[in-house]
Every structure is written in structure tokens, then in C-alpha cells.
Computed example of a mutant assay.
Amino acid sequence: MTLFKKDIFGKSLFLKKTLIRTLGLVSHRRYRGFNELHIEGSEIIRDLPPTNVLFISNHQTYFADVAAMFHVFNASLNGRVDNIKDIGYLYNPKLNIYFVAAKETMRAGLLPKIMEYAGSISIERTWREKGKDVNKQVKMSDISNITRALNDGWVITFPQGTTTPFKPIRRGTAHIILKNKPIVIPIVIDGFRRSFDKKGLLIKKRGILQSMVIKPPLEIDYENDTVDDVVTKIEYAIEQHPSFLKVVPVPVEDYQKSEDELNKKREFWTNY
């Protein structure tokens, strides 16, 4: 019976569906109401195979980015083109969408734990822990869980591993790509950092133009590309290569000031 079926990590599919529907209903106005999410390229989603698809994206908040992708993916699979109108697409959401997140992030409060149940692959960060730089060995069980998730469905990952812009791409993402040979779909988001707090749980400002651009599959030569080749391709695909900076190089503080100035130009107000 459907009521008792579980996903590959032993989580109840009935409960996952209930949580995704509930979180979707609660979060919908954050992207269509308080703010407006502009989407490009969502027609790519519905032509993807049901498994072994890896979405790579820049990262701006802990949770708002992922929630928006759940909305856009399910809307596209239910016939919407570049929009998330008519929330009926949540009635039967795709349940084998997973996202990679740091364990310490997913344990910080009740809502993160609920989101973890809805689809998180929690991993231990090897370079950062409790706000401090560390140097830890990669846990093979974390890599194995990502592989299992790819074999079962779609996986969302943020290869920089941080919400700070223009940080280096983590080489582990390239290793996962070369090992599993998935279809790699780049996504570029903007406006989330201005709309929400760092965690993506609180609305910081209304009337902000949010954007999500879904790009065609990344071209990877699985026979000849090296890890460094894939890292460079990821940097360009998610627009986090240093060449995308307005001034190269700039301190993060100056970049944020530039973003704030840009924000004033991008604000708009809509009536709902």
C-alpha cells in the first residue's frame, strides 16, 4: 500500500508528500506575492529522465533556494512554462528530488529537520564546521548516499558549499559528476539574498525581483575531462567564475555594496 511505502533512505513517502504539499503551500507567496520569481528555461525540466540528473546552482540562502526549485520543478512537470501559477501542481509532487545540505545546518531547529525529511541528503562538510575552517576527510558514506539518490531520482547541489558569492567550487562535486555521469543541469539564481535572511526562512524585503535561469545540460567529456576541467565548467555554468565579477578581484564587502545598489534599481511593487 502507498501509505507504507518508503524512499531509498527509509522515509515514508506518504509523510514526504504531506510535508512537501504543506511547505509548498506555506512558501508559495514568498515567490509569487511578497516577491515575484521570474523563471527562464523551465521547459528543460519536463524532458529530463526520471533518474541520474544533477542540478548545480549558485547558493544565496540555506533553504529558500531549494524551496523555489521544488516549486519550479513540479510546476514544469505539470505543464507550466516559466511560471508557478495555480498551485495545484503540488497535489502530486515528484518525491524523488533530493538536495545536498550540511548536517549541522539541517539539525539547527525544527523547520530544517522537517525539510531534511522532505528530501535532504545531509553530509558533513570537510572544510567548515561551527563557523571555523577545518580540514576533514570526506566520508565515503556521504558520497555513497549522493550516488544512491542519483540512481533513484534527481539531486540538487550547491557546489560552492556556501552562500558567499564567488567562493571556489568544491572538487567533490566534480568527482561525483565523473563517477556517476549524470545529466548536469546548471541553474543561476539571483535576488534571494536580498529577499530573505541568510537561512531563507524570514522575508527580509518585499518587492524584490527574484530570478531563476535553468540552462541546457552541461557538456562534459566523460572520457577525457579532468576534475579541474569539470570545476572550470561548473564555475562558468553557474556564473561564479571570477570573470563574472564587475571588478576582479573585489572584496566580498565591496561586492555586497554593489549588490545593494543594484537592488535599488531592481525593486518593483506588484499588487496581489
Rank of each mutant, 00 (worst) to 15 (best):
T2D: 12
L3K: 09
F4P: 06
K6V: 14
D7S: 01
F9N: 07
S12M: 05
S12G: 09
T18S: 08
L19V: 15
L19N: 02
V26G: 02
S27N: 07
R30L: 13
Y31A: 05
E40G: 05
E40Y: 07
I45K: 01
N52F: 07
N52G: 08
V53H: 04
L54D: 09
I56H: 07
H59S: 11
D65K: 01
V66F: 02
H71Y: 04
V72E: 04
L77N: 11
L77M: 14
V81I: 07
D82P: 09
I84V: 10
G88P: 08
Y89T: 10
L95W: 04
I97D: 04
F99P: 11
E104F: 01
G109F: 00
L110C: 01
M115S: 11
Y117S: 04
G119T: 12
E124D: 14
W127E: 15
W127C: 08
E129W: 02
N135F: 09
K136D: 13
V138Q: 06
K139R: 15
K139L: 15
I146L: 11
R148L: 15
N151Y: 01
G153R: 00
G153E: 08
G153F: 03
V155W: 00
I156W: 07
F158M: 06
G161N: 03
G161F: 04
T162W: 01
G172Q: 02
T173I: 07
I177R: 02
P182L: 08
G191F: 06
R194K: 11
R194L: 10
K198E: 12
L201F: 13
I203T: 15
I208K: 03
L209G: 05
Q210D: 06
S211R: 11
M212L: 14
M212E: 02
P217Y: 03
E219T: 10
E219D: 12
D221W: 04
Y222P: 12
T226H: 03
V227Q: 00
I234D: 10
Y236W: 06
Q240K: 05
K246C: 06
V248M: 05
P249W: 01
V250Y: 00
E259K: 10
K264L: 14
R266A: 13
F268D: 07
T270C: 06
